[in-house]
Design a protein around this nucleic acid. Structure first.
Lengths: 205, 205
DNA sequence: TTGACTTTTAACCAAATGGTTAAACTGTAT
DNA sequence: ATACAGTTTAACCATTTGGTTAAAAGTCAA
């Protein structure tokens, strides 16, 4: 049966195109026509594969979310020692974002718009343990006295912020500090080690 | 002359309404009708005061940008000692965002869309010195040996990230860590002191 | 080849949305 | 009162945009 192959072909082309457009323009900024064009197909065919814009968007969003978050959690969930965990997290997280620079903005944007609509779907009722385990780990280290006292959530926020934000502010940064693309990605590369070092310097005793 | 009063009245009503809508929905997500409704006026009257959507948006954007950035720069430009400057910056910056939680997302979003269109207008050709002076100050301290060696840009990014990001990720954070509004703003309040302390702990010798 | 099927297209439609128009209203000066 | 300027409105228009339809083109088994 050729149908399946073709299906995958065209369906995949559409998803790739839709992803590109949605990630950059966002839900309301994206045009079905643009997606069709980017996929090299007809707008009608787009609707043949995906009933409507909302559904297509949801497919893209959930797909991205379900690829992205587990990667984060897997590290925070792991049973590495705290410092190693922080190192690994920064490195892998930045790597991840470097390959999908628009993802954080896209994600947060969307969640800001329809918080409940999507958040519910990407994190089932009970999958908080990941973050919890990391927070507990910090608390434990604080109590053991191996690191300086700090509110675990604050530390988590610091780590996340420093990894993600620069990518969201990239165009602004480029302009403000007069960097070119290459210098920027070099900076981010450095950051993989800089951030853990910065954090560890701050909390180690 | 009543014209001016009325002008200011209606014109102001429109700006307030437009700001509210644009900040939350973004340029492409905002509807002129919604803005008119929020202002309690007719759509035609909206166009009587502002030729079209683009122009209205630009007015709002530039207004916000010109209010916001100088506040940042004023602190970074000042001639406070480094540590005090960091303390002041975190406190005032977070305060600022707490009063306009949607601003960072709105701003960065827009800059991500049409980088050149707006960035050119909000930062005239030559107003980089602010950031530079802060970077130079860090460099100087490093050379003096009063703080541990660190790339000034990295430190600046760290500071900015930790102040801004949590607000952009707020809905996500609320859900993930199961906080309510009050707990969140409490956390952010703590952060005003937490961030400087965290940074200073990390870089002081 | 034919006939059933999926896939693709061009043309079309309807709703949403930005924008306009012409008339009505308001207050002020004459 | 009247004329006049600025202000506001209801109704309307044009374009964009998401979505549909019906027919054409392609695929494959018999």
């Amino acid at each position: 049966m050729v149908k399946n192959e073709k299906d995958k072909d065209t369906g995949e082309k559409i998803l790739v195109a839709a992803r590109k457009i949605f990630l950059v323009k966002g839900m309301s900024g994206a045009r079905m026509q643009d997606i069709a064009d980017a996929a090299g197909i007809n707008k009608a065919l787009l609707h043949y594969y995906f009933r409507n814009k909302d559904q297509l968007f949801e497919v893209i969003f959930l797909e991205e979310a379900k690829k992205f978050f587990p990667k984060i959690n897997m590290i925070l969930e792991s049973d590495l020692p705290l410092f190693e965990k922080i190192e690994k997290f920064a490195a892998e997280y930045i790597d991840e974002i470097q390959q999908n620079p628009y993802l954080p903005m896209f994600m947060l944007n969307q969640v800001n718009q329809d918080t409940d609509k999507f958040l519910g779907k990407i994190m089932g009722r009970k999958n908080q343990p990941e973050t919890w385990s990391f927070l507990l780990q910090i608390e434990k280290e604080v109590k053991k006295g191996t690191i300086k006292p700090i509110h675990p959530v604050q530390l988590l926020l610091n780590l996340l912020s420093m990894c993600v934000f620069p990518f969201m502010a990239k165009p602004m940064i480029l302009r403000k500090i007069r960097l070119d693309e290459q210098q920027f990605s070099q900076l981010m590369e450095q950051r993989k080690k800089e951030i853990p070092q910065f954090i560890i310097n701050s909390i180690k005793k």
